[in-house]
């Protein structure tokens, strides 16, 4: 019987977690997309060799503690204000790589003004936007992105668009602004989509290195806890309901 330790050798390694990810246990629910996106950002940072020059701006939302998981310098913003922080960090240290990481409540409700104006100024930053159609952290309330008819704790009978309006497609709005150079919508629920999201993130950081303006990577993601579904069911539900309203793919891609 061969001892496991005789197999664990550098020459036998086929996959290794990037060192940009920390050893801390993730605070996310099992099955949640947040953790996958964290890993992709960490991999892109490692592959681009920008760990020592990258500053992340964490939001208020389930990812408020994102700074515990990536081994880079971080600032934690007030709810919705990450784009304002990112603006100043980048303007004062243009040689650094700056990204904000925000949920849909953070980016498209309380922080709408900061989001739109950072994009409109064409701040040379990356904005990573996790759209799970709900307020995950506070226990599943209606978000600006909650689908018509979709139940949440503050619309238990389903979102009534005559009462609350239609869900906001913020990425499409931001793509209208001349300041954005790249606006894309991705997902991380299958291996293929994970690969595509990683490519999109890489492109966004490369745009920043090339001084192209604001890049926004939206990831339509599940909130299995908030949606009150199993992880597998939530991914199926996402495909059937979220993707038709929030179609995946590039919304704007200026070469």
């Amino acid at each position: 019987m061969s001892d496991i330790n005789t197999i664990i050798k550098p020459e036998n390694i086929v996959y290794k977690r990037t060192d940009v990810l920390s050893d801390n246990d993730l605070s996310y629910c099992p099955g949640c997309g947040h953790g996958t996106v964290h890993k992709l950002i960490a991999e892109v940072i490692e592959e681009m060799g920008i760990q020592d020059t990258t500053i992340g701006i964490a939001p208020v939302g389930c990812s408020v503690l994102a700074y515990n998981y990536l081994e880079i310098d971080w600032q934690q913003a007030a709810h919705g204000r990450a784009p304002a922080l990112a603006t100043a960090v980048k303007r004062l240290m243009p040689e650094k790589n700056v990204f904000s990481y925000q949920g849909d409540g953070d980016l498209a409700a309380i922080g709408t003004a900061e989001t739109i104006h950072a994009c409109n100024r064409g701040e040379n930053i990356v904005m990573i936007f996790i759209n799970n159609g709900i307020y995950g952290m506070t226990g599943g309330q209606m978000a600006p992105t909650t689908l018509p008819g979709m139940a949440a704790s503050t619309c238990p009978h389903g979102r009534d668009v005559s009462h609350d309006g239609e869900p906001i497609k913020i990425s499409e709005i931001l793509a209208q602004l001349p300041g954005t150079c790249y606006v894309t919508r991705q997902s991380v629920h299958t291996a293929g989509n994970v690969r595509k999201t990683k490519k999109a993130l890489r492109k966004a950081f490369e745009n920043q290195a090339a001084n192209k303006g604001t890049s926004l990577v939206e990831v339509v993601s599940n909130c299995n806890s908030g949606w009150k579904m199993t992880p597998i069911k939530s991914n199926e539900w996402m495909e059937e309901n979220m993707f038709p309203y929030y179609p995946l793919g590039d919304i704007k891609n200026e070469e």
Binding site: A84, M93, A113, E114
Partner: peptide, 20 residues
């Protein structure tokens, strides 16, 4: 020197810059 979209934004820009 930057004109922000609101005082909410300007004070948060200050936060970002101070953090650096």
């Amino acid at each position: 020197v930057l004109q922000a979209e609101s005082e909410t934004a300007s004070i948060n820009m200050v936060y970002g810059g101070a953090g650096c």
